[in-house]
Design a protein around this nucleic acid. Structure first.
Lengths: 169, 169
DNA sequence: ACGCGTAGGTTGTAGCTACAACCAATTGGG
DNA sequence: CCCAATTGGTTGTAGCTACAACCTACGCGT
């Protein structure tokens, strides 16, 4: 039997099964809170949140895609819908005529500020407050290690940067 | 400002941002490997894998839903498709005429055995082998703690049980 | 033995994502 | 300069999921 077919030890397996369950349940939980309270998917929220932290509340599509860990195609569809709802607007980038900028509208900025507290509350409740401070540190290191495998070039590792409260200006 | 609106410390935030990225990238990675190599989604795979461990390769829909962390509605759609592909079959449960059993066909059993090694390999590559043994232990505890918050009744915690290699009889 | 609440599932549909195809602008090599 | 490759982005579509509505069977209280 080749090395690729090694199975997992029972401890590794127990960990993996739990992780798989978290992968399934946590996004669903976040989505339904935001949908119910703000009519936003978790991904929609992240798009708005990343814009809210950017200078001028503006980012190029490519930069926004990196920060939200999404493909450009997906982002394009989502941005189109958010634009239709008046939460952001697109305009051609002056420096590079291939590029498109996305900018938060006033309504979009308001939406982020309104929905942030509820989102943060559920993240605390389901994740942060479930763990000891040491575990939070451990989880940070563990997810960092996994991300390096998932995304070795760190294209999407712009994400590792700071992230501050919208409205905190 | 109420207690609900507390933001996160920068360390908590760094952890959360990384976790969010893993939540986005890891399922996509698993899905695409299985789709490419076995024409199965990650969820399809889990359905087949859970059946493969059950006595007679058979489970009630409800039991299968618990083990796969899914809603019954979702499972029903997925099982319908898998049945159409000949990988499993449904039949009414003799003891309770409301209930439906799902049973792996020979082709389904073969599919699980064929696709398991590739799936395990990517789980090792992206998760297990990215971590030290201590980190695997830590991650097991951390995900356990999060799951207790996500699913307090532990309805879906049947998952916490053992999970052995298909084909290992 | 009847009614009502619940358990077990299925189905319809709107909406989101992945994948592939496509197009326009930019850049670099000869 | 010019064209080939690359970058930046959009669009069409098939397929999966969530949510709600619905149906049948079971079981308990009276």
């Amino acid at each position: 039997m080749s090395v690729d077919t090694r199975w997992l030890t029972s401890e590794q397996l127990a960990t993996w099964v739990r992780l798989a369950a978290v992968l399934e349940l946590l996004p669903a939980t976040l989505d339904s809170q935001l949908r119910r309270d703000a009519e936003l998917t978790h991904f929609d929220y992240y798009v708005l949140a990343m814009l809210s932290e950017a200078p001028e509340h503006t980012l190029r599509m490519t930069a926004l895609a990196e920060r939200t860990t999404a493909t450009l195609a997906r982002l394009s569809h989502v941005v189109q819908r958010l634009e239709g709802r008046g939460l952001l607007e697109r305009f051609p980038c002056p420096e590079d005529r291939r590029a498109t900028n996305a900018r938060l509208t006033e309504a979009g900025w308001q939406k982020v500020q309104d929905s942030a507290p509820g989102h943060v509350a559920i993240v605390r409740e389901k994740v942060i407050d479930a763990l000891s401070p040491e575990q939070v540190t451990q989880l940070g290191e563990i997810t960092g290690a996994i991300l390096r495998r998932l995304d070795p070039d760190g294209d999407r590792a712009a994400i590792y940067q700071r992230y501050s409260p919208p409205g905190d200006s």
